[in-house]
Computed example of a mutant assay.
Amino acid sequence: MNRVSFGRKEPPYSDSFLNRLQAISDEWLSNRMEKSFSVGSFAPEYVSRFPIAVLVGSDGNEEAFVSIAGDHHPFITTQESKRLVTRKSRFPCESSV
C-alpha cells in the first residue's frame, strides 16, 4: 500500500525544497499555460514568503503542494499555488490538494 503523509512547512526554505516545488509545478503544468489570474503562478521568490502544505509520498518525496498566502484572520487562509505530480493522480482528490 502506498502511503502519503501531510505536512506543513514554514519559510525560510532550502534551495533543494524550492527546486522540488518547481519540478512539481513544471510537471503539473506540462504543456498547459500558467493561469496566474485564477491560481497563483509559481515563482520561488513569492512562494518563499508563505507556509507550504505538502503531501509526501512513501518514498519521502514531496508529491503535491499548496502555498498558503496572506495575512488573514487566524482561521481563514487563502490557497495560492496548487500543484500535483501527475503520475500520483491516485491521491484522494486533486482539488483538495
Rank of each mutant, 00 (worst) to 15 (best):
I76P: 00
V66F: 02
P51V: 01
H72C: 14
F17N: 04
S14T: 14
H73T: 11
S89N: 14
K35N: 10
P44N: 01
G40N: 08
G7C: 05
V47S: 03
F37M: 13
I76E: 04
I68R: 02
E94M: 11
L18K: 03
V85T: 15
R32H: 10
V54M: 03
S30K: 02
H72D: 11
S16C: 09
Y46K: 09
D26S: 09
R8Y: 01
W28N: 13
T78S: 11
L21R: 02
G60R: 09
F37L: 13
W28Y: 12
N19W: 03
P44G: 05
R90W: 14
H73R: 13
N61Y: 06
L55I: 05
V39C: 08
F37Y: 14
S48Y: 04
S5I: 13
L55F: 08
E63M: 15
M33P: 12
A23G: 11
L84Y: 06
V56D: 04
A69T: 02
R32Q: 14
V85E: 14
E80A: 13
K9R: 14
L29R: 02
S41Q: 15
S30W: 08
P92W: 07
I68A: 00
G57V: 03
L29N: 00
N31P: 10
E27W: 11
H73S: 03
D15L: 14
G7A: 09
S30C: 07
E27N: 08
V54K: 00
P51K: 01
C93K: 11
S30V: 11
N19C: 11
T77V: 15
S25A: 15
V56Y: 05
D15H: 14
V4D: 10
P12G: 02
R3P: 04
E45V: 00
R90K: 11
S5E: 13
R8Q: 13
G40M: 06
G40E: 03
D71N: 14
V97Q: 06
Y13T: 02
T78L: 08
S95H: 11
T77I: 14
T77F: 10
S96A: 12
M1I: 06
G57R: 06
E10V: 04
Y46V: 04
H72N: 15
S81R: 12
S48H: 04
I24G: 04
I24S: 08
D26F: 01
L55P: 09
L84F: 08
N61H: 12
P92I: 09
D15I: 15
D26G: 00
K88N: 11
P74N: 06
Y46G: 05
V4S: 04
R90T: 09
I52L: 01
Q22K: 14
K35G: 06
F37S: 12
S16V: 13
E10P: 00
G60D: 10
R90P: 07
F17W: 04
A23F: 05
D26K: 05
A53E: 08
Y46E: 01
K35Y: 08
I24M: 02
R3G: 08
E62M: 06
S81C: 15
G60K: 09
S58L: 07
Q79N: 09
S36V: 10
G7D: 09
Y46P: 03
